[in-house]
Simulated assay, not measured.
Amino acid sequence: MKALIINGHIKWPQIAEGNLNKTIFEKSKTIFEEKGYEILETVIDNGYEIPQEIEKWVNADFLLLHFPINWFGMPAKTKDYIDKVLMSGYGKIYAGDGRNNGGNYGSGGLLQSKGMIVNTWNAPEETFGNSGQLLEDFSMEKFTKPFTATLQFLGVQPLPTFAFYDVFKNPNIEQELSSFETHLKNNI
């Protein structure tokens, strides 16, 4: 079995160097290796070749995409990667939106794998779903639905999202890494 682990952190010198996402990336690789997976990897900020990325997506049994949330979305360079790889993957990753084969919209995915979104936030966890907070109407799963819907569109079964919260002002990295390890092991 193969796991594609994608590090979508984009370095911002003196603001966000990417150490946490590098740690998540390495921890993920270790967990998958312990479970017997062959590792396919991409660090978007290091560059990539689209044909090789398409093959990684096609060959992966598990896709783990992690990235920081910048201004309530994925970094632009990470979104650019997604757009280029997926649009170029027509016929290998997906075959239309599904309706051209008599299915419903979103049923044209050709991948048969599992996937997980992992993200890092400056926002504290209580920002989500609590009255008076900025994201009071959103759970993490609701907020990340556009990302997990992309996986579903491709035929990837999305698993529960994992988030690291408050990573700048009140980081609790060791505890969250432990929780992440448990979360990932329980979902592989």
Rank of each mutant, 00 (worst) to 15 (best):
Ser28Cys: 05
Pro158Cys: 11
Leu177Lys: 11
Leu159Ser: 05
Ile10Asp: 04
Phe32Gly: 08
Gln133Lys: 15
Leu135His: 05
Gly8His: 06
Ala60Cys: 13
Asn70Pro: 00
Ile5Ala: 05
Glu136Val: 05
Glu26Phe: 00
Glu38Ile: 13
Met116Cys: 09
Lys92Ile: 01
Phe162Ser: 11
Ala123Met: 10
Trp57Asn: 07
Leu65Arg: 03
Glu174Val: 10
Ile93Phe: 02
Lys29Ala: 13
Met140Arg: 09
Ile24Phe: 01
Lys84Tyr: 01
His66Tyr: 01
Phe128Tyr: 15
Ile188Gly: 02
Ile93Arg: 10
Ile188Met: 09
Gly129His: 04
Glu17Ser: 10
Val58Ser: 13
Tyr165Ile: 04
Gly18Pro: 02
Leu40Arg: 06
Ala95Ser: 14
Glu136Phe: 11
Thr161Ala: 08
Ser107Leu: 05
Tyr90Gly: 11
Trp121Glu: 13
Gly106Leu: 11
Lys35Pro: 00
Phe143Tyr: 11
Val156Thr: 13
Asp137Asn: 14
Phe67Cys: 04
Gln152Pro: 00
Tyr165Cys: 07
Ser139Gly: 06
Ser178Pro: 00
Asn122Met: 09
Leu184Asn: 08
Gly91Pro: 08
Trp12Gln: 09
Ser179Met: 10
Val156Ile: 15
Leu20Gly: 10
Ala95Gly: 07
Asn172Ser: 14
Met87Gln: 14
Ser139Arg: 05
Ile93His: 09
Val118Asp: 07
Glu41Val: 02
Phe147Cys: 13
Gly109Asp: 12
Tyr94Lys: 13
Asn119Phe: 11
Val167Gln: 13
Tyr81His: 12
Met1Asp: 05
Gly108Glu: 09
Gly132Asp: 03
Phe162Trp: 10
Pro171Asp: 07
Gln157Ile: 13
Asn172Leu: 06
Ile31His: 01
Gln175Glu: 15
Met87Gly: 06
Ile188Val: 15
Thr30His: 02
Trp57Leu: 15
Thr120Cys: 09
Glu126Asp: 14
Phe153Ala: 12
Lys145Pro: 00
Ser113Ile: 02
Glu41Asn: 09
Ile31Thr: 07
Asn187Gln: 14
Thr182Tyr: 02
Asn19Trp: 01
Phe164Cys: 11
Gly73Pro: 01
Asn119Met: 12
Leu63Tyr: 07
Asn46Pro: 00
Glu49Trp: 02
Ser178Thr: 14
His183Tyr: 00
Leu154Val: 08
Asp137His: 11
Pro124Tyr: 07
